[in-house]
């Protein structure tokens, strides 16, 4: 049994999501190999080789993989994947984009958002916005899984795997990268932040998020948002937490002016400690909060900023 983990990276550095996917692979058991597909991505491969439990790192360094285009990576993963028992990657927007393509080309089903490994063929995943948890058994010859990284602790970096370059260029020729508009932020990414402060429609506008950013900086926190705050244009899309946004599980999640719709709860209710600040005592967010404060956020947040 050999497991292929596809690394998440930006050609320069390995994302911490991959450490967690390797943890899921470790729970399955067997040899673990990592594929780094990209361009000028040698540093990523060297870093991936240090992940504990990994025996080999394959590097497919080619211009056609530079932008992680799903059409090209999908062909590569389907080609290599034939000789593995399991293929795993993070349930990130990158993983969700290419892995179903590879699965279809391999003529197997994919199991999305795995939160627990029961055995080499049995996995646990949420559906219906996390309101139900299914234990599923795969009869496919190759198990293709995306891993919900918030449910796993990353492996340590005590390994020293061999790094092997592979000459395997695929270009489907049907898509090309035009441009990217990446959000620049000094704050921790939502996926790895220990504390997250999120704002909702109650924030009223984008300028008011400055208050939350100040609070976040005092706590070393990342900043998130509800769909309503993103739709209203207060903050960019990559801050959306929820069923169809980012799934997070920090030590502390502070929800400010967020009502607590099912879809929002789906993205944060596995946080260790939840604080809700809302002026409506009936807001459903209070039902999942460890600490609730029924008050006007425009009084509470400045007071927190002053007292912390």
């Amino acid at each position: 049994m050999t497991i292929l983990v596809i690394a998440e990276h930006d050609n320069a550095s390995l994302k911490p999501e991959t450490h967690k996917v390797v943890a899921a692979a470790t729970a399955i058991g067997g040899d673990i190999e990592i594929l780094v597909a990209g361009h000028n991505c040698q540093d990523v491969a060297v870093n991936a080789a240090t992940l504990s439990g990994v025996s080999k790192v394959l590097v497919a360094d080619n211009q056609s993989y530079a932008d992680q285009l799903a059409e090209n990576i999908g062909l590569l993963v389907a080609d290599l994947g034939k000789s593995y028992s399991h293929i795993l990657t993070a349930a990130s927007t990158t993983g969700k984009n290419f892995l179903p393509r590879a699965a279809a080309l391999l003529d197997v089903n994919q199991i999305s958002d795995v939160i627990r490994v029961e055995s080499s063929d049995t996995f646990v995943r949420p559906f219906y916005a996390g309101n139900a948890i299914a234990t599923v058994k795969s009869q496919d010859t190759i198990k293709v899984l995306t891993i919900r990284t918030s449910a796993f602790d990353g492996v340590t970096q005590e390994g020293s795997a061999a790094v092997v370059a592979i000459d395997n260029a695929h270009d489907a020729g049907v898509s090309s990268f035009v441009s990217g508009e990446m959000t620049e932020s000094e704050r921790p990414e939502l996926g790895s932040a220990r504390v997250i402060v999120s704002g909702g429609r109650g924030m009223q506008n984008g300028e008011n998020f400055a208050m939350l950013e100040e609070l976040a900086d005092k706590l070393g926190a990342g900043v998130g948002a509800s769909r309503a705050a993103v739709d209203a244009g207060f903050v960019p899309n990559d801050m959306q937490v929820g069923q169809t946004g980012k799934i997070v599980a920090p030590e502390l999640y502070i929800a400010v002016g967020i009502s607590g719709a099912i879809q929002h709860l789906a993205g944060m209710k596995d946080s260790k400690v939840i604080v809700a600040i809302n002026k409506d005592p009936e807001a459903p967010i209070f039902q999942v909060a460890d600490y609730g404060l029924e008050a006007d956020l425009f009084d509470v947040i400045p007071a927190l900023n002053e007292q912390l």
């Binding site: 927007t93 049907v174 035009v178 990217g180 996926g191 990559d238």
Partner: peptide, 14 residues
Amino acid sequence: TREVDGGLVTVALS
């Protein structure tokens, strides 16, 4: 234009 984890990416498709 695609909503991705880090922001927005635009691709051209045949």
